[in-house]
Simulated assay, not measured.
Amino acid sequence: MRILVTGHSGQVARELRLSLAGLGEVIGLGRDRLDLADSAQIRQRVRELRPTLIVNAAAHTAVDQAESEPEAAYALNATAPGVLAEEAAALGAPLIHYSTDYVFDGEKPTPYGEDDTPNPLGVYGASKLAGERAIQAVGGAHLILRTSWVYSKHGRNFLLTMQRLLQERPHLRVVVDQVGAPTWAGDIAAATAALVAGWQAGNARWGLYHFSAGGETSWYGFACAIAADLRERGLPCAELEAIPASAYPTPARRPSNSRLAGDKLRRDWNLALPDWRDGLRACLDAPR
Rank of each mutant, 00 (worst) to 15 (best):
L49K: 01
R254Q: 09
G207Q: 05
A245S: 09
P170M: 05
D115T: 13
P255W: 02
A75R: 10
L273F: 02
G131S: 09
M1G: 15
G7K: 08
I135N: 04
A59I: 03
L91P: 15
I27P: 14
A227W: 04
R156I: 00
L76N: 11
I188W: 05
V138R: 07
L265C: 09
R231D: 10
D35E: 02
G279F: 04
L20D: 07
V150Q: 03
D32E: 09
D268Q: 12
S99F: 02
L76W: 10
A185M: 03
T117V: 10
E107Q: 08
A213T: 03
E67M: 11
R43Y: 06
E216K: 07
A225E: 10
G106C: 06
A213M: 01
R50V: 12
A286G: 14
A134C: 08
L208W: 10
Y220L: 01
R14N: 05
S19A: 15
G202W: 07
P287C: 12
G221H: 10
P70T: 07
A75P: 13
A245K: 08
W219P: 06
D105M: 01
L121M: 07
L166D: 07
D116C: 13
G82E: 06
D32A: 12
V55C: 09
R267T: 04
T183H: 04
W149N: 03
D229R: 15
A213E: 00
A245G: 12
F104R: 02
S148L: 01
G140S: 05
L260I: 02
A72V: 06
A197H: 01
Q41D: 05
A93M: 12
V176D: 12
R17G: 15
L23G: 14
G214R: 00
L273H: 01
H210L: 06
H210C: 10
S212T: 08
E232N: 14
H8Q: 11
A37E: 04
L260F: 02
D177E: 13
R281W: 10
L95Y: 13
N119K: 15
V138D: 00
L36Q: 03
T192Y: 12
L91A: 11
R50I: 04
R47D: 10
L195E: 03
S68G: 07
L34C: 03
L208Y: 15
R50D: 04
D275I: 11
R2Q: 14
R164W: 09
A73S: 15
V63I: 13
A141R: 11
L160V: 06
E107D: 02
V175D: 00
M162C: 15
L29Y: 05
D116F: 08
R233Y: 09
A189V: 08
P120C: 08
A194C: 12
P109W: 00
W219C: 13
R156F: 00
A126I: 02
T183S: 11
A193V: 08
C237T: 13
G82N: 12
H8D: 09
V103F: 02
M1N: 13
A228R: 14
P255F: 07
I42V: 11
T110H: 11
K264N: 00
E69P: 14
L84W: 04
S68P: 04
G214N: 00
P118E: 00
A80M: 06
A73E: 07
P249Q: 02
S218F: 12
P182T: 06
S212F: 02
C224V: 14
L165T: 09
D115P: 06
T192I: 14
D229I: 08
R47M: 12
G10W: 05
A126H: 03
Q178T: 01
D115V: 06
A57W: 04
A242L: 14
A80W: 08
